[in-house]
Design a protein around this nucleic acid. Sequence first.
RNA 1: GGGCCAGUAGCUUAGCCAGGUGGAGCGUUCGGCUGAUAACCGGGAGGUCACCGGUUCAAAUCCGGUCUGGCCCA
Length: 1054
Amino acid sequence: MNDDDADEGEISEVGETYRPRDVEEDVEEYWRDTGAYEETKQAHDEDPDLYFLDGPPYTSGQMHLGTAWNKTLKDCFIRYKRMQGYDVHDQPGYDMHGLPIEVKVEEELGFENKSDIEEYGVESFIDDCKEFATDNLEAMNEDFQSMGVWMDWDDPYRTLDPEYMEGAWWAFQKTFERGLVERGKRVINQCPRCETAIADAEVEYDEITSPSIYVEFPLVDDEDDASLVIWTTTPWTIPANLYVAVDEDLEYSKVEAHRDGERDVLVVASDCLEDVLGRGRYEDYTVLETYSGGDIVGRRYRHPLESQVPKQKELDMEDGVHEVYSTDFVSAERTGLVHAAPGHGVDDFEFGEEAGLPVFSPVDTTGVYTDEAGEYAGEFVRDANPDVIEDLDSRGLLVSEDSTSHRYGHCWRCDTPIVFTATDQWFITVTDVKDRLLEELEESEWHPEWARDNRFRDWVENARDWNVSRQRYWGIPVPIWICGEGHWSCIGTREELRSQALDSLPDVEDLDLHRPDVDEIQVECYECGEPAERVEDVFDVWLDSAAASWASLGYPGEDEPFDSIWPAELIIEAHDQTRGWFWTQLGMSVAALDETPYEEVVMHGHALDEDGLKMSKSRGNIVTPQEAIERYGVDPLRSFLLSHDQQGDDMRFSWSEIEAKQRTLNVVWNTHRFPLPYMQLDGFQPEDVDVHDAELSTVDRWVLSRLQSTKQEVEDAMEGYKPDEAQRALLDYLTEDVSRYYVQVVRPRMWMEEDSESKQAAYATLYRVLDECSRLLAPYTPYVAERIHQNLGGETTVHALSWPEVDEELLDRELESDVEVLRELEESAANARQRVSRKHRWPVKRVVVESTDEGVEAAVERHRSLLLDRLNAKDVEVTESWSELEMEAEPQMDVLGPEYGGDAGEIAEEIRGSSPGELEDGVDYDGEHVDVTDDMVEYRDETPEEVGEAEFSDGRVFVDASLDREIESEGYSRELVRRIQEMRKEMDLDVEERIEVVVDFADERVEELAMERREFVAEEVRAEELRTGSVDDVDYREHWTLEDADVEIGVSRL
RNA sequence: GGGCCAGUAGCUUAGCCAGGUGGAGCGUUCGGCUGAUAACCGGGAGGUCACCGGUUCAAAUCCGGUCUGGCCCA
């Protein structure tokens, strides 16, 4: 690349083809050297604020294709909004706390559980976590910049900064003050390895194999000694069973059944009877009685393991324990009865709480039974399954035993199957403000709409109280202190902590809020003044990012910019964030501030592999952005990413599509490159010619009008958050209109040697088009946009410029539709030519356009000379009906259908292929007579030889390719010109270099025809002399065949 | 097991909300152009519109179900 010496402010020649990586390197350097990013920010300093909020990626990995897509979308909108005249808030963020990082650090240190951490020292562990997160941040910062994303990389918000953590404390305190913080037993997902509660969002579901057992629960005081039959895949929860659930509206049967000489009386749902008895291998059975679930509600049973678990005998004394209840979580599956352990199941717990039942959860944080589990104490719950089954069997209570595979929750980080246990946790009771959540949800606008209406609302409606506490180390400490009396004191800021602390603390700036430092601080209880200790828990990491909209702004430490820009106007994230950031932000903000923290949401999809499958390490189908950048470049990759409908849809990765994007950009590149040498040669100064005053030709006016329409289209699409449509409109304009049409038509004007108004107008037009397009391209492909802008003599970075406005004066809809017609005719004519094998180089006598559309005729009349030139035709005419040849009828179903209903098909068959005469009297079908009206048919016909025919949307085009002397003469002379030009190229001659040509024709007739235009040929090929005769003593010679005629051509330099 | 989204040519997709003989780009193939030339342009071939059923004179489009993939939940 040698075009990096492009002088600012001057049009430069570009000699190379498009090499994305070279362009990107050059532009990167230019941006660095000129401080382009700062310059751009400065240019919009005084504009109205726009608070875009970056969703913080988690600093445990690196950029993948999904995050690259996400940041590219964000960058695209940031650049666009800036150009639209906004001072866009562009601070990136990083989510740096939490269990995932702890797990990674534990892995590095070879730790297996929490006691390893305690032994190692919490302080050192915290330091390691911090280092890990910070290192990753640096790497990710670089990754994102390599995608050409312009954000404030020097100053990201980091959830581990004290001022950020304070934002979370403050909001939690607000929530606390509003009475929405609770402590209580809840059934939570416990990871026995990490020894902590994990959020619903942190549970991943995988297929596992579990025992599948049917168990008898003997009823108390039953005349037939009947037992309830329950089914479970978690035998280990039976020691904690407190009640059995049925559906009151379901029918149940009491049956007497026999196997191996034993008699059992069982109660199961009637629909499940056959299945259960089959599994139990019963030989026969008799239904003793049927009743509804409601009839057995309140019946008592004996706990099947009461002798193994003595605690169950105590619990049996309590009201309501070991009774049958009707709940809404029962269905007629398996047995239609559900064993419920409030200590180990969410539904079980919630219903148990309503019914006033106790919670029994004899399992510790590591998933090991406590002493309350009697004989099972000390055993890991899942390992106890066989013992439980054996004990049940030995008591004769096991109906059947099998195994089943089903989906079960696992810890997302260490993949350990979770255990549901009821433990003490801190909650934000979002269920208390659900109405407000649903109201505030309406205050935000979502793209696409269904993301909010069909998805997010559903999630919010079903949201449960948010368990925000984790029994871990690396996170924001829960700011609650408890005194000896059990009073809670909630601290909201560092300043408040200082003033409330019993010992004197360092200045606010030097106060770190992390564990273990904060654990050592005692505060004075707000209620009784006694010393209070902090609870040991840290926050769920989702609470960190939930506070981003104010915490990233340094609030409450700083009032500005929070007071002036909150809430966020725009957030852009993938669809997995419905349960994540979209939700936690809304939940936290409504709980603390009673208001939505964001106004507009753009939801995009995930990046899938080439087969539409998720990219994952285990599948080994991961494609990294770096790989794609190396192979094709950043701009092609961005262009590819932004070409997808991002509104909620997943994207399939495709190498060939990136390659296609690169080729499209290559066309754009060549389009901008084409006029540069001519402009430079003529010393064209953009500021000297205004397109409004220039002598514009039809195509000039047309391409400028199309520019206005394109700007409008692009802007409309961007305002609707559809960058894919915007980019498509722009690239279509550049390739279809500018490259494939305008540049083709305008070339001869650029080649004119002497200066002319016409040439100046062409320069001005193309300059205007390219200059504005470089700005339009900026949000999508920032590098190549910048390069084009610079090559056109841009004085500042393109990204600091304003979005080009639509110039109504240059808009001419009629002209646009005229040219659309002309181009269609041109295409059809090319098609017609091909059918009679007539090259475009050979003129044709005339082109006949057959159309009844008045617009077509008008367009042709208005632009006759342009069209003749494009068609390479001597004449063009428009007629309503040109051919009188035999015509064949084609039935029109859109008319026949509504008219004849079910008979339309048959009538159509009668009509098809008939001549107009045959249809004059109508057709008969099935004994009925039908009149055939004009609108029911259209006719096709055939054309004479030497006339090519092709259709276009409003009719047909006929090309009369018959030859006469003039046409042959012109054709052969042009054939000759092309061969000589080819030889000039092979000889590597300069464009201006003069030559001498000698041609030896084998065919006299061809010689005569071609030489009739000797001067034309000589001028075209810049020959001082063009003669015929034998070729000898020349610099370069070659044999050719012109159509069927052999010639030998000799060319010599002068 | 439930909710949401998607399934259109070899590939990427438009069309679907407001039903009337399926468009485009890439690839492929044939051809053209030859002062953007390691470029550029045109034509052709290529589609049971995932599958099954329903509504309708008429369904890619509306309705119900199935399958596949994705996200979320249980």
